[in-house]
Design a protein around this nucleic acid. Structure first.
Length: 993
RNA sequence: GGCCCGGUGGCGGAAUUGGCAGACGCGCGGGAUUCAAAAUCCCGUUGGAUUACUCCAGUGUGGGUUCGAGUCCCACCCGGGCCACCA
């Protein structure tokens, strides 16, 4: 056939709702929306602002503009927020619903390195492509509030926030961040001591200190600071990497190159100052509970005690059995040299202190050198002398320790995980005194103790800690019980009088002098009191969260607004110097090599001219690192409020309107009523659960900083968070374990074939790598965007992961076709509605549908909302002509879900102003009440009959009606009723024997 | 290893506070329409027994609480996710 379309073209009615017509309608309304700026919402102070309306700020996690474009999995959340935003507009809210791009980052830079093209060019091209894909889906984002983190006018404010953080300190007294000037006041007045032993060893007063000394002390308080810390250094990529950019094998996520832990001087952010507030403020947030838990775990607050163990002087008498005696023997007094060898440990179980039989320090612990002896003490057990692969034979403690440290450093994280159960370590040759019972305990180093947590040293209580127990068994150390385990446990875990595993539960303290007989919680409190009295320790709290590594050796990121003078003193630029724009360079690639000991060379160093700044004839060097990808995403939501403001991050009045919490308190239950549940910040933030900790934690941290400094009016950025599920899809692997193009796989009798070869089916997250991506453009072409939107929402609940199945799309496609055909003549395109009133049944069903759909829309239950519309539309299909008074609310209910077809029908219904800002239909409660309802009658819990009664019928009436039922009577033959449970409006249950 | 989430027809999924399991859609079967097909419309569709009325079983497995359990409790199995020697 020369023209395959001609046959179908002749027969398909001109106004049948098929892909082609859908596309025409969609293009028409997308243009109309643009022309009218339909989705732009004005700010307070703007000409058209309607101050009488309440507000809703509905937002997605903004995407990275990838070069391959969207697949149908990406817009799931965007469609949901668009639906919800459209619904809220019809409910009379001022709705802020913007979209932006998280556009700095490694992929664009890598592409630039390969092609030599500036990353800005490719990134902007990708953004334009994604924008047109989103436009085609009919997403109603505010056209005047778009942004990208790479826009100079945007990152100017990212840099400004950095300066605000740099120029502030954490005032513990006020429990908030304050400008650095207030710190200087306190230093000058002596309210805060001028430095510590490290920054001010001679204990000078503030005014006696030199300028550089003063600067060092101020720097040590700043919330953004430079520090030399161990970081993930990847020489092959030439950059340091964040932990999340390093995979489980200890290699770079990108390129699979080796990564080394090396101490390097980097920018840090003092997020640890905010641990408690980040923890406490989670409570009132309307967030998924698992996400809150992940944040809590990440912050990792644990309560316990810090206890000082004193190391015994080399060659000291080790025969002491009581602490107080040892203390005397050792001549322990204030200022005695031995006091410098206090080893501080952190423990969450101070109640087990009497069971501490040895100590372990992290291999990097600063006291290790001092503690390591030249000779093994006489009492050294053979097993203590070193257990680790490649330990030298017959070595001295010094050699052993040195060798072990080298071993531990070389060990990758994977190796560590692999032999989690097998402990390694070395005895230092030194002993310490257990402060409560005076026992001498050997001091080991082992890599199961981490320098980064607590004090980097532990007291080991092998009977009550799994890890300590494992170590003790290997190193032949005693395991005395100091917490009484339950009898059952003892039966199982004590064999031949020997402990088989550690008891880490709670119970009565035993063999513990002052706390004997106390339950764990009381014992903890009492022993902490005792330690504090004796000056041996104190109650303490520890956090797992570390300060945030904030610099990268990359080109494609925000430059720091920081310069250095010739002494290396840090100098912050001011707002007038912003933005600090990225320089042009001829090569975007970082220096790369294979040498783990090489130093990072930031690519910005190549911009020799840019890197030097001359101010008042003096030369300064620019900071050459750039900010991490998280910087822009930490605060972008605030810029949506007023992206064009050149004088401030955002105007106070504008910020307060969109962010400020007018009403407080979270409603119990899962449903969310935007009228009453309002705790401030963004009203709905939708995105994937993969950002549970990093982005959402960093963002909360910055927001709290900005709150402390008076730039925002709410303590939290996102009042309500919702995690959408993933779109999964079938992927197919051939016999050589390669993925094959899923779209070309054919199914025959439950088996799958690709090019006649049988392939295996799996299910996974949709994406390029599994070769199972389905493009939204393709779907829009075949069915139209409205059908695609409906299908994505109809697949299942928004929060669930569910498989994509192109075959199923026809279901919602047919729904739209049927609805269209119910209202429009397929041949003439003319409207089919009548002005006559609908029949009562239809009217009742309409109002039931309105009530149901409203409830579903409010709780983001779009799948069931659609089901209700389908059900109602199916009912209408059998009617000759649809009443206008039914058609109009139906089209309105459809409009958030399938806005283009709804606009078109609305126009056909004779309205000229568009459907977007019309009022969502309201159910008439009178029509929701039925005269008579059908209730089940159960006998012994099994349905034996149905009765028709008034919904208000009382239990007595129900019982009478039930007994009058023929089938019920039959089933009751030979039985006598023992009990009747009748619940009005629900059911009747007859208990009979 | 720890913690979290989930398991309902051939498939995706519905089921207020415990109260008629399987809404709605896909697929499948049957019918109407058509010269035929596509499209459309109607009927059926958890399994088993039954001509039928109807009966029995049934929400991963095993126990429990209850007049009544997909829903609550205990133990276990399977799948997915997060963390992983955090003292």
């Amino acid at each position: 056939m020369s023209n395959p379309d001609s046959a179908t073209q002749d027969k398909t009615p001109a106004f049948r709702y098929v892909g082609k017509l859908a596309q025409q309608i969609e293009a028409k309304w997308q243009d109309r929306w643009d022309e009218n700026q339909t989705f732009h919402v004005p700010n307070p102070g703007d000409a058209n602002f309607d101050a009488s309306k309440p507000k809703q700020f509905i937002m997605d996690m903004f995407p990275y503009p990838s070069g391959v474009g969207l697949h149908v999995g990406h817009p799931l959340g965007y469609i949901a927020t668009d639906l919800y935003a459209r619904y809220l507009r019809m409910k009379g809210f001022n709705v802020l619903h913007p979209m932006g791009y998280d556009a700095f980052g490694l992929p664009a830079e890598q592409y630039a390195i390969q092609t030599g093209q500036h990353p800005r060019i490719t990134t902007e091209k990708n953004i334009a492509n994604m924008q047109s894909q989103m436009r085609r889906l009919g997403l109603g984002h505010d056209p005047q509030r778009g942004l990208a983190t790479i826009d100079v006018e945007f990152y100017k404010w990212t840099q400004w926030i950095f300066l605000e953080i740099y120029n502030s300190w954490y005032d513990d007294e006020a429990d908030r961040a304050r400008p650095i000037a207030t710190l200087i006041e306190k230093l000058e007045s002596g309210a805060i001591p001028a430095g510590d032993g490290e920054t001010n060893p001679e204990g000078k007063t503030w005014t006696q200190l030199s300028q550089n000394e003063q600067a060092a002390i101020i720097d040590s308080h700043r919330l953004a600071y430079l520090a030399e810390i161990p970081v993930n250094w990847c020489p092959a990529l030439g950059t340091v990497l964040a932990n999340e950019e390093v995979n489980a094998e200890g290699r770079s996520e990108r390129g699979d190159h080796p990564v080394f832990r090396r101490p390097l001087k980097q920018w840090m952010m003092r997020i640890t100052e905010y641990c408690d507030r980040l923890l406490d403020d989670l409570e009132p947030l309307d967030w998924p509970e698992p996400i809150k838990k992940m944040q809590r775990d990440w912050i990792g607050k644990s309560k316990g005690a810090e206890v000082d163990f004193l190391a015994v002087e080399p060659g000291g008498d080790s025969s002491g059995t009581s602490f107080f005696e040892s203390r005397k023997k050792l001549g322990w007094a204030e200022g005695s040299p031995i006091e410098e060898l206090a080893i501080r440990v952190f423990t969450t179980r101070p109640d087990t202190l009497y069971g501490a039989t040895y100590m372990v320090l992290a291999p990097e612990h600063p006291l290790v050198d001092q503690l390591t002896q030249d000779e093994w003490p006489e009492t050294t057990v053979e097993a203590w002398k070193g257990q680790f692969p490649g330990s030298p034979e017959g070595a001295s403690p010094k050699e052993m320790v040195q060798s072990y440290r080298a071993y531990a450093e070389s060990k990758s994280d994977v190796d560590r995980q692999k032999d989690e159960k097998v402990k390694t370590g070395v005895f230092t040759g030194s002993f310490a005194i257990n402060p409560v019972n005076g026992h001498l305990v050997p001091i080991f180093i082992a890599d199961y103790v981490l320098m980064g947590y607590g004090t980097g040293a532990i007291m080991a209580v092998p009977a009550h800690d799994e890890r300590d127990f494992e170590f003790a068994r290997q190193f032949e150390l005693p395991t005395p019980i100091v917490v009484e385990p339950p009898k059952k446990w003892k039966k199982k875990n004590i064999k031949d009088g020997e402990l088989v595993s550690a008891f880490s539960g709670e119970g009565k303290a035993v063999n513990s002098e002052v706390i004997d007989g106390l339950e764990t919680q009381e014992a903890k409190a009492k022993i902490i009191g005792f330690l504090e009295e004796q000056g041996l320790g104190k109650g303490a709290i520890n956090y797992r969260l570390r300060d945030w590594l904030f610099s990268r050796q990359r080109y494609w990121g925000e430059p720091f607004p920081i310069i250095f003078d010739e002494d290396g003193q840090t100098i912050a630029l001011t707002i007038d110097d912003l933005p600090v724009e990225l320089p042009e360079v001829d090569n975007y690639a970082p220096e790369t090599n294979d040498d783990p000991d090489s130093k990072p060379q930031p690519p910005l160093g190549r911009a020799k001219e840019w890197a030097k700044v001359t101010i008042d004839g003096k030369e300064y060097a620019r900071e050459l690192n750039t900010m991490p990808n998280w910087a822009g995403s930490c605060w972008y939501y605030l810029r949506y409020l007023q992206p064009q403001n050149n004088n401030a991050l955002v105007d106070k009045e504008v910020e307060s309107y969109w962010m400020h919490s007018a009403k407080k308190g979270k409603e119990k239950g899962d449903t969310y009523d935007p009228q009453t549940s309002h705790i401030g910040g963004v009203d709905l933030y939708v995105g994937g659960a993969e950002h549970a900790v990093l982005h959402l934690l960093y963002s909360r941290f910055w927001h709290k900083l900005l709150f402390d400094l008076g730039h925002v009016s709410t303590p939290e950025p996102f009042g309500r968070l919702f995690n959408q599920g993933y779109v999964q899809a079938a992927s197919y692997k051939n016999s050589r374990n390669f993925y094959v193009e899923a779209s070309e796989v054919e199914e025959k009798d439950g088996q799958f074939f690709f090019e006649d070869e049988e392939v295996k089916r799996e299910f996974g997250k949709m994406g390029k790598s599994l070769k199972n991506a389905v493009s939204p453009d393709e779907m829009c072409e075949t069915y139209g965007a409205d059908t695609l939107r409906l299908y994505e929402m109809y697949m299942g609940p928004l929060e669930a992961s569910k498989p994509w199945n192109t075959r199923d799309i026809v279901g919602v496609y047919r729904f739209l076709q049927r609805l269209w055909r119910n209202l429009v003549d397929e041949d003439s395109g003319e409207l089919l509605v009548t002005d006559n009133a609908p029949d009562e049944e239809t009217e009742r069903l309409l109002h039931k549908t309105i009530a149901g759909a409203t409830k579903d829309m409010e709780s983001l239950g779009f799948n069931t909302a659609i089901a209700k519309l389908i059900e109602f539309n199916n009912h209408l299909t059998s009617q000759e002509k649809i009443s206008r008074s039914v058609a109009e609310p139906l089209v309105q209910m459809l409009s958030p879900l399938a806005p283009h077809i709804a606009e078109e029908l609305w126009e056909k219904l004779g309205h000229t102003d568009g459907i977007t800002y019309t009022d969502y239909p309201v159910a008439n409660p009178d029509l929701l009440v039925e005269d008579s309802i059908e209730l089940p009658v159960m006998i012994n819990g099994k349905v034996r009959g149905k009765i028709n009664v008034s919904p208000e019928a009382n239990p007595k009436e129900l019982e009478e009606a039930a007994l009058a039922n023929e089938r019920v009577a039959e089933s009751l033959e030979g039985l006598s009723i023992k009990k009747v449970i009748a619940i009005p409006g629900k059911m009747i249950n007859l208990v009979a024997k």
